[in-house]
């Protein structure tokens, strides 16, 4: 039991990233409000960044800025790759928000179920 808890403690960053990813996926799947879905996508992106940073971590390591202090530096490569990821997530968020603005102008609602109902009604009328 103690060993299992110790293992959970050692992997707490990875497990936290997995939990965050599942929370985001749950938000995307269960909510029909489009803004909440965009929030879910953002949470999933944050989980991926967290996982990457956790992979590059060295316990007690120095930040990757060269100094005279003795010690080992953390892995700088994941941090660099995550900068690209942040930019991509920002672009995706802004693009989906602008699409939501257009959807609201067209349908008068941002709830996906109501949009489906409106579409069904229009198809029935045709």
């Amino acid at each position: 039991m103690i060993e299992f808890l110790q293992m959970l403690y050692d992997y707490v960053n990875y497990l936290g990233a997995v939990a965050l990813f599942i929370i985001g996926l749950h938000t995307v799947v269960t909510h029909s409000n489009l803004i909440k879905r965009i929030m879910g996508i953002n949470i999933m992106g944050t989980a991926v960044f967290y996982f990457f940073i956790a992979i590059g971590n060295v316990t007690g390591g120095l930040p990757p800025i060269l100094t005279d202090t003795p010690g080992e530096y953390i892995n700088p490569l994941p941090s660099v790759l995550i900068l690209t990821g942040i930019v991509v997530v920002v672009s995706i968020t802004v693009y989906s928000l602008s699409l939501v603005i257009r959807i609201y102008e067209t349908y008068g609602t941002i709830d996906q179920d109501e949009i489906a109902k409106i579409n069904e009604r229009e198809n029935a009328d045709d």
Partner: peptide, 27 residues
């Protein structure tokens, strides 16, 4: 899904610092 992903994450090498496969010759 959470249990499945946790199981696969627990198979990874943990926070072992300099011995980690990510800390390779490029780093």
């Amino acid at each position: 899904l959470f249990m499945l992903m946790s199981y696969s994450v627990l198979q990874m090498p943990g926070d072992i610092g300099l011995d980690s496969p990510a800390y390779n010759e490029a780093t």
